Amino acid sequence: MIPPYVTAWSGEQDLPHRVVERPDRGIGFVNELLSDRDQHGVLWQQTMLRAGTGRPEFGRVHPLRQRRAMELLLCQVCGCIAAQNDDGVLWLQRDHRDDWPGWPEGMASVEPPICVPCVAVSLRHCPALRRGAVVVRVRDCSVVGVRGVLHRPGVLGPVAIGAVTMSYGDPGVRWVLASGLVRELRDCTLVRFEELADQAA
């Protein structure tokens, strides 16, 4: 199996950076570059770009490729444009309909969308999806925030305190070292797998 586009490889290690507190109450890197932040001013984990080097690490997502796939609505598996029609952009999700009424309406997703041919590939190869998955068309999938590691001030510098998902509107986002872009899924319609098979034929 060819590893998904967003999968990190063993040759793609995080670049060493020292996180420091900034005067404007947030975190930054020593010798920070403009490219270390997104358009909202949030600091991002910098990781080597060496896809195909070493072995794929299926449990690890490459921050830059995930961000690119989410920004451009690319398929998380092949990296091409995700499936879109009048009903919205196509997403493949683990089935969490028991989590709340109307799921996945309002869900914050760090998983990029998908194209029709890659749905079958994902269902065949991903153990988590084999336990239950749904295909969803999403008409409104606005970028709302980031997933990453929250920091707090410390005596010797900022201290990492754990993983969070935080909206761009939250002042605390200045203390997050981001590794994933988040889109909120709204105006969702569940799609039967049989309908996708017809589209792929």
Rank of each mutant, 00 (worst) to 15 (best):
A160N: 08
A108Q: 12
A82Y: 07
E111Y: 00
N85A: 06
Y5K: 04
D14R: 12
T165Y: 04
S10Y: 11
L33Q: 12
H96Y: 15
G26Y: 00
L129D: 08
F29Y: 15
V143D: 08
I27V: 08
Q66E: 05
V6S: 10
G52Y: 14
R186W: 05
D170V: 05
W175H: 03
L33V: 02
V110I: 09
A120G: 08
T189P: 02
V116L: 09
L185Y: 04
G54T: 08
E194H: 06
V143S: 11
V146R: 01
R68S: 14
A178W: 00
R192Q: 12
I161L: 03
V138A: 06
L33R: 11
V89N: 06
G180H: 00
L49E: 15
V155G: 08
M48A: 15
C80G: 14
Y168N: 01
P101W: 04
V30E: 13
I81S: 14
D99E: 08
L129S: 05
G148V: 02
H151P: 09
D36E: 05
H40S: 11
A108H: 14
Y168H: 09
V143P: 01
H125E: 11
V42W: 01
D187N: 13
R192W: 08
V19Y: 00
A108P: 05
V146I: 13
E12G: 11
L90N: 10
S10H: 07
G11M: 03
C141W: 09
R152S: 03
A160M: 02
R94A: 12
A128L: 11
C75Y: 00
V6L: 14
N31Y: 05
